[in-house]
């Protein structure tokens, strides 16, 4: 047993060292492409950290969103950046060299001071603190689900999640407001991507459904399921998925707002019946949460894929 503890301790130290050096390299490497690749690696290692911290729900979300989708977004942005302005990289690195010593050293000193100050603050926290664990445990039976994280997300602090769906929608509205129209790209000529897509997309959809269903009792839930669905959407977009224009107007918008819409309507209905915002009747809580999560999964998936596209989608066949 002690040997295992020792090995785990060693693993912790190695992981901490790796994560920290990757973060530093992301910030310091000259090449942006390299920085993004390192950032994706950083995200994957973070997923491992979450597992070590017994946070499998976050590990799933981090692997799908933190490493996967954020990385894909960055790569796509870098790709478009180089097509917009190829000389930019030279200009930026040339400017970098002009940075005087003091403008680099002073922030570095500040960095060390902040780490020391915050580190001291952390170390003076009490050794043992239960946080809200006892409160969650006590009320789990009334929550309608068995996974404590899902209970917090959809029930105890469901109102945060409602607002968070609005944040996601707002990001998309702002992107659309900026981005103009973006035509769905022509069918990819890459046969490997095409066949990969045919295999992967159904699998991803299945995984998404599984994560959604299992989220009530085990790690998983709307956000993880939604991000897997989003990944499937990104794959489809990359392989040149064709959607007719008529589906890109009303039906797409409907799916995008479904999550926040169902949440708001549910909140209003419960206010009328139960007299409280998002106060579920205990017996019905289970299926109500599943309904909310299903709607949220669809919206999250569609929103993430749309964010990847980066503009109002338009069928490539002009009507």
């Amino acid at each position: 047993m002690e040997a295992l503890d020792f090995a785990l301790g060693l693993f912790d130290i190695l992981l901490v060292f790796l994560v920290l050096s990757l973060a530093w390299l992301v910030m310091s490497s000259e090449d942006l492409f390299r920085a993004i690749v390192l950032f994706v690696a950083f995200g994957l290692l973070m997923a491992l950290v979450w597992v070590r911290l017994e946070a499998p729900d976050i590990a799933l979300a981090e692997a799908a969103i933190g490493a996967g989708l954020t990385g894909a977004l960055m790569m796509a942005a870098l790709d478009r950046l180089s097509s917009v302005k190829p000389i930019q990289k030279v200009a930026a690195s040339a400017q970098r060299k002009q940075l005087s010593l003091s403008s680099k050293v002073l922030p570095l000193i500040a960095l060390v001071l902040i780490v020391l100050g915050l580190g001291y603050a952390l170390l003076s926290l009490p050794e043992i603190a239960d946080g809200l664990t006892p409160n969650v445990k006590e009320n789990m039976a009334q929550s309608g689900v068995k996974n404590p994280v899902t209970a917090v997300l959809l029930n105890f602090r469901g109102y945060d999640t409602l607002l968070e769906m609005v944040v996601l929608l707002l990001a998309l509205l702002s992107v659309w407001s900026l981005g103009g129209e973006r035509k769905l790209s022509p069918r990819s000529t890459n046969p490997i991507l095409g066949s990969l897509c045919r295999v992967l997309v159904p699998v991803l959809i299945l995984v998404s459904c599984y994560l959604l269903w299992v989220g009530a009792d085990a790690p998983g839930g709307a956000f993880q399921a939604g991000s897997v669905l989003g990944a499937a959407g990104v794959l489809l977009l990359l392989s040149g998925w064709h959607v007719e224009q008529k589906y890109l107007l009303w039906p797409l918008r409907f799916i995008l707002i479904l999550g926040s819409g169902v949440f708001i309507i549910m909140a209003a209905v419960l206010l009328l019946i139960q007299g409280g915002l998002l106060t579920y009747p205990v017996a019905q809580a289970g299926w109500m949460i599943l309904l909310l999560e299903s709607a949220a999964t669809l919206s999250i998936g569609a929103t993430l894929a749309a964010l990847f596209l980066g503009g109002v989608p338009k069928s490539r066949v002009d009507q």
């Binding site: 976050i58 989708l69 954020t70 239960d130 969650v136 956000f223």
Partner: peptide
């Protein structure tokens, strides 16, 4: 830091919220 078996689930939920906010802002 909790004395019990399981870690505190509330920060876990907060972080999942935070990850979604982060990807929105990044996009």
């Amino acid at each position: 830091r909790s004395a019990g078996e399981l870690p505190d689930p509330v920060p876990h939920a907060m972080v999942i919220t935070g990850i979604v906010v982060a990807v929105s802002a990044t996009a």
